[in-house]
Design a protein around this nucleic acid. Structure first.
Lengths: 329, 329
DNA sequence: GACCGTGCTGAAACCGCTTGCATTGCCGCC
DNA sequence: GGCGGCAATGCAAGCGGTTTCAGCACGGTC
């Protein structure tokens, strides 16, 4: 069944080393030999066993892709970007679906057992420590959507969440809203903490806060329902995520409020769905394509030189205006 | 850096074979030796290199997961189910993002190079031949969402798309609609062909047909806009996919039509998003969880005995009633 | 013509693990 | 007490590749 090096060598009338070299770019082989090998390989349908190769080269070409939110459509885009970006670089994504799991130990062991060349952790919900434990295990690691700092313990690519909070507050104030609300994700997540910090910094006493259980539609809806029940409503809300925004809007509409006429909503992410014409969410856009590129670029650098000191790379958000806020005065 | 078998053997004072056996369930080792080995392994932080193991056992535990639609949110759910299902069985998903690619050759080579134990192709857009070429390469293969037949060339798990078309037509007729429309996906896809066949069989001359370019929001929207421009509208439409349905509804609302008061819509899939309260799509539900289970069950069987003759497993759809059709009379 | 550098090549060791086979020691049994 | 049987063990040969090293042929230089 399996066509091996030895078989090709025999057919081409050369040694196994010669065949190996023929398949190694830059190796010392006479063009004629290489041609003969290639011919034989072609005829036999040979292609090298990458796992056997990995045993000596210590490079598998596999990169762990660790994800944990499968209920937020934005992750489908992120998936797409990562898998294609990896493929473009000749790397294979080995998926790790965390769903529920919060202990990194098993995932670390797994990726080590498969000798992954690197790992990208894509999550805004996990603490940075999660990603750090991959790095601690000696695997080049980049964390996407984590918390950035001046001297991070692990490489991070993210937006400046504090600044995003400020931007949202400014956008709302510029549109004449004076009582502002923030509907975050879970309280423990750094993204939510940071966005709130920036939001509150700009909005000051005009800001009020409510967390939701999750970055999901249902959680956003429930949070807004709670807000509706609690009395003191804001005039406009910054939701920490598009999907939370949509849940919130749904709750508002259910209660008879119109968006944006009665209450304004601004989200964060600008996932594909936010632009669907029956949604039309005004939102802060995360530059996902750029972020993914930055992650992979850094990962490749790290794979080449694992000794690099960790950096945080923070990309800027931009406002995507649609129809859930009233216009600027 | 890497802790190997030999190191553990030395520390435990046994041969390398003994260590190997200690890690092989059911192997012939004295409980005492195994304990000693485990102790040494623990102390050293050893866990076996699965790729080296694979070289002799010819089992990598990696399964190719081939996908090509990253714009339809339903695939996020499908992803989640597959990755978790694989993990539960001790298998690792190796992702192949097809986006655009229609030639299976590269993907086949890739999975062979990585010695994937099996592959699941999840796509309703690719022809069955695509999946067949994996099987032809000697890799156990199951196609999810392909076209079923009595004697398929490759194992398939799917719904009965013809029957789904019938169900949709019956549901519309039962609600008193008399002029029925079908908005399919791309004409070349078997899913669309089959759903239309069943739909037309029941609806007869009352049925009209329009394809869309894609299983996506924009395509659904464009198709409905074309329909609006073409004159003869139906009273209710069966859309071949939820995301097409949502696009279609958006186009209708834009043109001033109310759903379901003026025009009814029924989708297919029942993805998470369809149940969001601001969407409330009436739709035929594909039993995704069961389907994924069936796929994996079959795949595992195939990995144990690749000689099994291909079967098609067709699971039933059910109607999920929400608010885009008027009630049954 | 001797010498040297250069470019190719093959033999053999090795990557980390499994496994067939032979060996050993122990047990129970007649 | 001798024997067969069996569980436990180690040796060594792979699995499919890469890579070091030494050897060889060739051409150019003095």
């Amino acid at each position: 069944m399996a066509v091996t090096l030895a078989l090709v060598a025999e057919r081409a009338g050369v040694s196994r080393s010669a065949v190996s070299r023929a398949f190694t770019p830059g190796a010392s082989v006479a063009p004629a030999t290489r041609a003969r090998v290639m011919l034989a390989a072609e005829a036999l349908g040979y292609s090298p066993n990458l796992l056997a190769r990995a045993l000596t080269t210590r490079q598998t070409g596999m990169v762990g892709l660790v994800l944990n939110n499968f209920h937020n459509p934005v992750f489908l885009q992120i998936f797409d970007l990562f898998t294609r970006g990896l493929q473009d670089r000749g790397l294979r994504p080995l998926l790790v679906n965390l769903s529920g799991e919060t202990d990194p130990a098993r995932s670390v062991q797994l990726l080590r057992q498969y000798s992954a060349d690197g790992v990208v952790v894509a999550s805004s919900e996990l603490p940075n420590a999660f990603a750090e434990s991959f790095k601690a295990a000696g695997i080049p690691t980049v964390l996407a959507f984590g918390r950035g700092s001046a001297t991070p313990r692990v490489d991070v690519v993210s937006i400046d969440n504090v600044e995003a909070g400020r931007m949202a507050a400014r956008a709302l104030l510029a549109r004449g809203y004076s009582r502002l609300g923030f509907i975050g994700g879970p309280e423990r997540t750094t993204t939510t903490q940071d966005r709130w910090a920036g939001f509150a910094e700009v909005a000051g006493a005009r800001a009020q806060l409510r967390f939701s259980q999750d970055y999901s539609f249902e959680a956003g809806r429930a949070a807004m329902q709670a807000e509706l029940g609690a009395g003191q409503m804001a005039q406009a809300y910054f939701c920490a995520d598009d999907v939370i925004s949509i849940g919130a809007i749904s709750a508002l509409q259910n209660a008879g409020h119109r968006v944006p006429q009665d209450i304004g909503i601004i989200g964060l992410n600008d996932m594909e769905l936010a632009g669907w014409s029956n949604i039309g969410l005004t939102t802060l856009r995360q530059p996902f394509a750029d972020m993914v590129e930055a992650v992979l670029e850094r990962l490749v650098a790290l794979m080449a030189d694992p000794g690099l000191t960790p950096e945080a790379r923070l990309l800027p958000c931009t406002l995507t205006e649609r129809s859930t806020l009233r216009p600027v005065k």
